[in-house]
Design a protein around this nucleic acid. Structure first.
Length: 949
RNA sequence: GCCGAAGUGGUGGAAUUGGUAGACACGCUGGACUCAAAAUCCAGUGAUAGCGAUAUCGUGUGGGUUCGAGUCCCACCUUCGGUACCA
């Protein structure tokens, strides 16, 4: 009755805002600490209970850090460019800026209801021109730089141009994709357009022909997400790869650094493994095969040069430029058809199905080491954008090549004897070479080296390091993204707009549909496109990651109009100490952010070479999805639902699974979830098309609103999955906060389990937290709202309970074990209740201990205690080890490893004394009677084990 | 297929380096208070046998190392994530 949480929440939300409690400024007298959440995309659906899991954890952690004397930067913002707002605009005509603003306001309201301690004065929005001015500015710098392989850092493109003018490009230390060699003279004679083309092959932000998902029927380019099984998700129209000029970022230039610098950061090993796999470094040999009857040579890449004598055919990607030339007339029809087939298949399809496809071109290549002629095939399992788009196939030692050879009846020559290496697979580089000319008899690693040397000495190849990592596609044919600060002259040579014209703002538009030739909607605004006399603007926009790859830097100095952040701010805040977010961003976002950060580091614009020191992935809170089984075919023109207990695994495919609002389902989330009579009626009224449906259960049938069975149980199917509107299982945190209070909601989410672990949302246990908070409150305030804390001196026993709790909570926060920290506080309350503790010496520190977890009631109690300021600016209590000392230890006494009793012994007893006392125990006597005591193991402070025989 | 993580009561989950398995909480059972209910408080709660003391079993399965294994090793099963014909 005295704990009115909604009133308390209102009061302190206002107080914190009025007093700028969470505002932070540079304070050189204090050490800094930067705690960052991955900022959300403000979707129309609002936050669900899954989102706050990470936010609450970082809130607790940052509050604790502030209370430990740090100057804590803990900001929040919005990744507010994105596809959904644009699609919404296409459907409704509402401008993305308007719907985004509305969504952001809703998000902010929801976040503030949770009592999160963000410094909102530092909010950033990626769609705000004051912000994307700097997104464009960084892009411009990338355009102006290339990667210098000697300095191993980004360098001005002007330096490269100077080198070209001096000595051409034969010996430049530049990472790029230019394959022509030219002299200084040739460079000087090039046209502007040619020069632009060459420089594009070196710039870190550059233009090249890339492939987009083009859907002819919709007349638009689709994102990977919008393509399912080779057809558009909307409408199911065919999607093909269409070549278009696209901006890219030369992320591959940084591959080695992105890989190696991971050793220096505190990320989980599994996350680092994911990043490593994405980068995908491999060492191998690049070499040329002669083509029979042709001048061109076929370039391939292999990580297994040792198997070269086992090569029995070559495989080219269907997109390989040589395919046409290699195809003999009599094979043309098949090859053309196969190419058509491959281009209509999405990359996902091409790579995920197990079936083996391919066609012969009619041409042959020549193995340079033994002169053997080998047939050249094409197949979709070879991808154009990895390696050289061509492989030498070794069916004896590669699973895919073997499957291919078996299907098309191609020869298989064994070249490695693995009999000495049991369990070794074709992927393991071990075994002894056979049938292999000059390397026969060698161990595999030696053979690899021997072939590499041989090939290099013959001048037909060289050792090479390859990366799976691809340059990032940086163009989107969309409206709701950052425009490029780029214009083209009539020769299509790209020019940057000067920095003082930034930001290039998105022009107004009243039609957001893409234009039909695959161009971005921006192309519709002719006036804007041709604003510069004689020039045309770039009409593509930047991808989502352009804005989200550097936002953490902007928080340091969000309102600076001269720089993306001042040197002073960067120097003080440095980098993110602690970053928390979902695994779904584990690869893409983190890789791009690291790339951006390293680039800015090279330019001397940020002080650290990695952006995120420590990173934790929170698990997902999943939803329970409840389905009803509906017979796919109607019976007597009626829909028939069948109770889940009546359906066997084999019959499942005869049924459709209809999601049902979980609120109708009894015991939802359990294997025995069911609809009772009321639930069935609720469902029928909710989905009117099923109002006359039949519901078949084991005890009888409910038909068209009638049943004789009062206690009918219609079982439903429970699954765990994403929270989504589609499954009618979204739980809004606002509802939970309104019902139970923000502090309860926060602690409950943390109490559910370890932060990294995914778990289904379930309110079953929330009463436990509610009870705990009420009991905690009742230590301070009685039923009649009287403050009952006394100034009486605390006993040692009481102090011990306090300090034990402080110790446990402190350690658990550091480990992010919030669930056990909360259980320690519960133990405290249980003890304090039992001992009837109401002493301020114990209870005032406890307000501070609970403060990071329950910011509202702790603030209320702090002020009820007559204290000034905010509890969140107090210092966290430090535990005193001297209160924790025990004079006795309780020893488990085991005989042969089986516990037989527990004894309290003084902690000062020696091993020998403990052994003696243990052997004297009555029940020990009973267990060792008639047997020989072999030995007694005494671990002081731990346990005693008596071994008998 | 491969990589990663994980399998512990009816449920969510505890358990430094191998050392009392099941903390804390939910749920359930019984009791107190109440005309009654809610709330609150007290007691019990891994399984089996027994009135009980107690005994036996028990951390996905099967082996192993050890005085001692939820924890380490080997093989396997299941689930969840990620990922792919990457040459």
């Amino acid at each position: 009755m005295s704990l009115n949480f909604s009133e308390i929440e209102k009061r302190w939300k206002k107080f914190w805002e009025e007093n700028n409690t969470y505002k932070v400024e540079i304070d050189k007298d204090k050490p800094k600490y930067y705690v960052l959440d991955m900022f959300p995309y403000p979707s129309g659906a609002g936050l669900h209970v899954g989102h706050p899991l990470g936010y609450i954890a970082s809130d607790i952690y940052s509050r604790y850090k502030r209370m430990s004397g740090y100057n804590v930067l803990h900001p929040m913002g919005f990744d507010s460019f994105g596809l959904p707002a644009e699609q919404y605009a296409i459907q409704t005509g509402i401008h993305p800026a308007d719907s985004t603003r509305e969504n952001i306001n809703r998000y902010k309201g929801q976040l503030s209801n949770l009592g999160l301690n963000y410094d909102w004065s530092r909010e950033v929005q990626t769609s705000d021109p004051d912000y994307y001015k700097w997104t464009q500015w960084i892009f411009a710098r990338m355009f102006e730089h290339y990667y210098n392989t000697k300095l191993q850092k980004a360098d001005s493109i002007d330096n490269l141009i100077a080198e070209f003018e001096n000595k051409g490009n034969a010996n430049v230390d530049a990472y790029g994709s230019e394959d022509r060699i030219f002299t200084a003279e040739e460079w000087k004679n090039m046209s502007d357009k040619e020069k632009d083309g060459v420089l594009m092959n070196y710039r870190l932000a550059y233009r090249k022909v890339g492939f987009v998902n083009w859907c002819e029927a919709l007349g638009t380019v689709l994102a990977n997400d919008e393509v399912k099984d080779g057809v558009s998700e909307r409408g199911g129209h065919p999607v093909v790869k269409k070549p278009m000029n696209q901006w890219s970022l030369r992320t591959t230039a940084y591959a080695e650094r992105l890989l190696n610098d991971m050793e220096k950061i505190d990320w989980s090993e599994s996350l680092k493994t994911m990043q490593r796999n994405w980068i995908g470094r491999s060492e191998g040999l690049q070499m040329f095969f002669d083509l029979d009857g042709m001048d061109e040579k076929l370039e391939i890449y292999t990580t297994r040069p040792d198997t070269i004598f086992g090569v029995t055919f070559m495989v080219l990607s269907p997109e390989h430029p040589y395919v046409e030339k290699l195809t003999k007339p009599e094979f043309e029809k098949e090859v053309t058809e196969y190419k058509k087939y491959a281009v209509n298949r999405s990359e996902i399809e091409r790579t995920s199905e197990k079936k083996v496809t391919g066609v012969f071109t009619g041409s042959y290549a020549v193995n340079p080491l033994n002169g053997k002629k080998i047939p050249v095939w094409i197949s979709e399992y070879v991808l154009m954008d990895y390696g050289t788009g061509a492989i030498m196939a070794v069916p004896s030692d590669d699973d895919r090549d073997r499957a291919f050879a078996e299907k098309f009846d191609l020869p298989i020559i064994p070249v490695i004897d693995k009999s000495k290496y049991p369990g070794s697979t074709s992927k393991d580089k071990e075994g002894i070479m056979i049938n292999s000319d000059f390397i026969t008899g060698m161990e595999v690693p030696d053979a690899i080296r021997a072939v590499e040397d041989k090939v290099e000495s013959m001048g037909i190849g060289k050792k090479q390091i390859n990366y799976k990592l691809r340059d990032a596609n940086f163009s989107r044919q969309r409206y709701w993204g950052e425009p490029f600060p780029v214009i083209y002259d009539d020769q299509e040579v790209a020019f940057l707009l000067p920095d003082d014209e930034l930001p290039v703002e998105l022009p107004p538009l009243n039609e957001f549909k893409p234009s039909t030739d695959g161009k971005s909607p921006l192309a519709r605004n002719e006036k804007w496109v041709h604003e510069y006399e004689g020039f045309t603007r770039e009409t593509d926009t930047m991808p989502g990651f352009a804005g989200s790859s550097w936002y953490f830097l902007r928080y340091m100095d969000p309102h600076n109009d001269d720089k993306f952040a001042s040197e002073e701010a960067l120097d003080y805040w440095q980098d993110v100490d602690f970053y928390i977010g979902g695994t779904e961003h584990a690869v893409g976002h983190l890789m791009y952010s690291r790339f951006y950060h390293k680039f800015l580091y090279d330019l001397g614009l940020v002080p650290t070479f990695e952006p995120f020191k420590r990173l934790v992935n929170q698990g997902m809170i999943q939803g329970v999805i409840e389905f009803l089984y509906l017979k796919k075919d109607k019976v007597n023109d009626k829909s028939v639902f069948v109770s889940a207990d009546l359906i066997s695994k084999d019959e499942e495919e005869d049924y459709a699974k209809i999601p049902v609002y979980i609120g109708f389902v009894k015991d939802y989330g359990s294997p025995k979830s069911y609809l009772d009579k009321k639930g069935i009626d609720e469902f029928r009224n909710w989905r009117k098309e099923y109002i006359d449906a039949e519901f078949v259960t084991s005890s009888g049938t409910y038909s068209a609103g009638k049943t004789e069975l009062e206690d009918i149980k219609f079982y439903t199917l429970s699954e765990i999955g994403k929270m989504s509107k589609r499954y009618h299982n979204v739980v809004n945190p606002d509802d939970v906060v309104a019902e139970h209070g923000a502090d309860t909601f926060r602690m409950y989410e943390m109490f559910l389990g370890p932060i990294e672990q995914s778990k289904p949302w379930d309110t079953k246990g929330i009463d436990g937290i509610n009870k705990f908070i009420k009991r905690f409150w009742s230590l301070y305030i009685d039923m009649d709202d009287n403050w009952i804390v006394t100034e009486e001196k605390a006993t040692n026993e009481e102090l011990k309970i306090l300090h034990k709790t402080i110790k446990k909570v402190t350690e658990d926060i550091a480990n992010l074990s919030f669930n056990t920290a909360i259980s320690a506080m519960m133990v405290f309350v249980n003890d304090a209740k039992k001992m009837n503790i109401h002493k301020s010496e114990i209870l005032i520190p406890m307000i501070k201990v609970i403060a990071p977890f329950a910011p509202f009631i702790s603030e209320e109690l702090w002020h009820k205690a007559g204290k000034e300021g905010s509890v969140h600016h107090q210092l966290f209590p430090v535990f005193d080890e001297s209160y924790l000392k025990e004079s006795t230890v309780s020893y488990p006494i085991s005989v042969n490893g089986k516990k037989r009793g527990i004894e309290e012994f003084s902690k000062d007893l020696s091993k020998e004394e403990l052994e003696k006392k243990a052997l004297e125990l009555k029940y020990v006597q009973k267990w060792i009677e008639g047997k020989n005591v072999m030995k007694v193991i005494v671990v002081p402070g731990r346990m005693i084990n008596i071994v008998v025989k």
